[in-house]
Computed example of a mutant assay.
Amino acid sequence: MSASIPVIDLGPWLSGDPDARARTAAAVDAALSRAGFLLITGHGVGAAERERVRAAARAFFALPTEAKQRYSVGVGGRGWLAKGAEANGYSEGTPTPPDLKESWTVGADQPTGDAEIDAFWFQPNHWPQAEVPQLRTEAEDYLGRMRTVADEVLRLLAAALGQDPGFFTDHTGHPTYTLNINWYPGTGVVGEPVPGQFRIGPHTDFGTVTLLDRQQGKGGLQVYVAPEDGGDGWQDAPWEPDALTVNIGDLMARWTGGRWKSGRHRVLPPSPDAPEEDLMSLVYFYECDPHTQVTPVGGPTGGPTAYRTVDSSAYLRAKLDAITVK
């Protein structure tokens, strides 16, 4: 296992033992200071639950294109995102061809009563009830499970940052969040990659924490770990079958004043050694309440970067606009 990206068991944290909780928090602080990534076990979400979501999503992705197009949306919408709609490298200024994936996207849909907020951040989810009715059941169950895990991770992160338990979760009373079910088919579906093309181009995530359940493959996840942080640049991400991959996004990095790194990553294109490799990732992006004012932590627990306070909604919306293929 990579020294920069450890596997951390949540069991000791959840045990309530103060010493065990302190050791876990210290390990999290060290990992997020290096690469912005770690793996967690002991999260309580079983493999069978995750595979049921995948099976339902595969049934949808296997539909004819004309059937999927009835649910077609743009970046930030709820439904089917076709191949070629996103280029995630744009968000960091890296000019890449469009990403080689399809996605089914759902998210927070309980309105706040504020029309301006609800129109974008709490859009109703749309479901292919006629074609794949089980997708709604499995995805909604998974969304609930991931929110519980995400809030516990945020409490752990608060301890790792030397803050009160509710430092982050005080801002997740009515949060925005999204589940992207990303399908990465082989070249028989997406065609041969052109130079510089990825399943997902290099980028950092935009929110607070991302919880990823992924499948191992040759055209899989890579994480950038700088030499000064003990890495050699791009490296294959470690994988454990029972673990969730956790990385922090831009808002969390800003909140810590740069103490923790927003984990830069990419997903490789289909490998010449396995051109028909077919992978699927369940990517849960957790954010915070709309229009949260993200102000960097000062003092001894914060980082060295002079970030300014940002409005979470304005920041996230600008990043989504940036990755949209025009």
Rank of each mutant, 00 (worst) to 15 (best):
A3C: 13
A3V: 15
S4C: 15
I5H: 08
I8A: 10
G11E: 10
P12F: 06
P12Y: 04
W13S: 04
D19C: 12
A20H: 10
T24M: 04
A25R: 01
A26R: 11
A30C: 14
L38V: 09
H43Y: 05
G44F: 07
V45D: 00
E49D: 15
R50Q: 06
E51W: 06
E51C: 05
R52D: 10
A62M: 10
A62Q: 07
P64D: 10
T65A: 14
Q69M: 13
Q69A: 13
R70C: 10
Y71L: 08
S72H: 14
V75Y: 08
G79S: 08
W80H: 06
N88C: 14
G89L: 11
T94I: 15
P95M: 13
P95N: 12
E102K: 08
V106K: 03
P111N: 02
A119K: 12
A119L: 07
F120D: 09
W121V: 09
W121Q: 06
F122Q: 03
E131Y: 06
L135Q: 07
R136G: 10
R136A: 13
E138L: 10
E138R: 14
A139F: 09
G144R: 08
R145D: 06
R145S: 11
T148H: 06
A150V: 10
E152S: 09
V153A: 05
R155H: 07
L156A: 03
L157P: 00
A159M: 04
G162C: 05
G166A: 13
F168T: 01
H171E: 02
P175H: 05
P175A: 05
T176F: 14
Y177Q: 01
T187L: 02
V189G: 01
P195K: 10
R199S: 11
I200F: 07
G207R: 03
G207Y: 12
Q215H: 11
Q216W: 13
G220Q: 07
V223M: 12
Y224L: 14
V225K: 04
A226F: 04
P227V: 09
G231H: 10
A237V: 15
P241N: 03
P241E: 07
D242Y: 05
A243W: 03
T245L: 15
V246Q: 01
N247P: 02
I248T: 02
I248K: 01
M252C: 12
W255A: 12
T256F: 01
G258C: 04
S262Y: 00
V267F: 04
P269F: 03
E276N: 14
D278I: 12
L279F: 07
S281C: 10
V283R: 00
V283N: 09
E287A: 14
E287Q: 12
D289M: 03
P290E: 09
Q293M: 14
Q293V: 11
P296G: 03
G298N: 01
T301A: 08
T301Y: 08
G303V: 12
P304S: 15
A306R: 11
Y307R: 01
T309C: 11
V310P: 03
S312V: 08
A318R: 11
K319F: 08
K319A: 05
D321Q: 12
D321E: 13
A322C: 02
I323K: 01
